[in-house]
Simulated assay, not measured.
Amino acid sequence: MSSARRRRDRVLVHLTELHELPLGGGPEAAFKERLRAELLSGRLTLEPEAPEVPEAPAKGRRRARRRPLLSQLAAMGLAAAMTVSSFATYQAMPGDSLYPLKRAAESTLVRLSTDDAERGRRELDSAKTRAEEVASLLGSSVEGPLLDKTLKDMEESTRAGISRLERTEPRSPKIKNFARDQKEAVKPMLTQLGEAQLAQAEGYLDYIEGLAEPE
């Protein structure tokens, strides 16, 4: 495995650990110390490549072109930056100034996933996070449009994740388990929702209830 791939995997592991923290929680001291040590040692940074020494092109032979690494460097740099800054963003809520960065970190986790099955699981993790955010927004002074959008984002992440898993792991118990857990999270909120939000949440519950296999 190349050193760049190993660094990418370390960044992905750290982002995953931060993403799995409960809202309002914080990273453990051991995690902070491990990340600090890796950053200081340079294990999460990209080493510059040695400059290419130009060679005189042989007759009848095309000079090989190096594949641009700009997109890869940008993705790795963004992931590393998000790993560090996630200490301040993992508990951001809709409406907070750092919330867009939290969502960007989630999107990065999805993009860095190795296959569609993993992307699907991460989409469902995002849907669970949106449900937690909806619960936190209820009764707050900022719920209004933010609550509507968070409910919508929850459904979009759910449908995207389920679609990926149904293609790659159609018999996976993760689908049924997700539907059960999400139903338990969303159903208690119904009595606190407005009319439009209630219709949205009930439609969502109808969708995920259909995902569970009959007993």
Rank of each mutant, 00 (worst) to 15 (best):
S2I: 07
A4H: 10
R7N: 10
R10S: 05
L12C: 04
L12A: 11
V13H: 15
V13I: 11
L21M: 08
L23S: 07
P27F: 00
F31E: 13
L35A: 04
R36L: 10
R36Y: 11
A37K: 11
A37W: 01
E38T: 10
E38I: 05
L39P: 01
L39R: 06
G42L: 01
G42D: 10
P48Y: 07
E49F: 14
G60W: 09
R62K: 10
R62D: 02
R63M: 00
R63A: 08
R67A: 09
P68G: 04
P68R: 13
L69M: 12
S71T: 10
A75K: 11
G77E: 02
A79M: 08
A80W: 00
A81E: 00
M82C: 05
T83G: 00
V84K: 02
V84E: 05
T89A: 03
T89L: 09
M93R: 15
D96K: 12
L98F: 07
Y99T: 04
P100M: 11
P100F: 02
K102R: 15
R103S: 02
A105I: 03
A105M: 15
E106I: 14
S107L: 11
L109C: 08
V110Y: 05
S113R: 15
D115R: 08
D115H: 12
E118Y: 03
G120Q: 01
R121M: 01
R121Q: 09
R122E: 05
R122I: 11
E123Q: 15
L124H: 06
D125W: 14
S126T: 12
K128A: 13
T129S: 13
T129V: 04
E133G: 08
E133P: 08
E133K: 02
V134T: 03
L138Y: 03
G139N: 04
S141W: 13
G144D: 14
P145N: 14
P145S: 08
L147N: 02
L147F: 13
L147H: 00
K149Q: 07
L151I: 13
D153Q: 13
M154H: 07
T158C: 06
T158S: 09
R159K: 06
A160I: 02
G161Y: 02
I162H: 12
R164H: 07
R167F: 06
R167G: 06
T168H: 14
T168D: 11
E169S: 11
S172P: 03
K174D: 03
I175L: 06
K176Q: 01
K176I: 03
D181T: 15
D181R: 15
K183Q: 05
K183P: 03
V186I: 13
M189D: 04
L190P: 03
E195W: 09
A196Q: 12
L198G: 09
L198M: 09
A199I: 10
A201Y: 12
E202I: 09
G203K: 10
G203S: 14
Y204P: 09
L205M: 14
L205V: 07
I208N: 08
A212G: 03
P214M: 10
E215H: 09
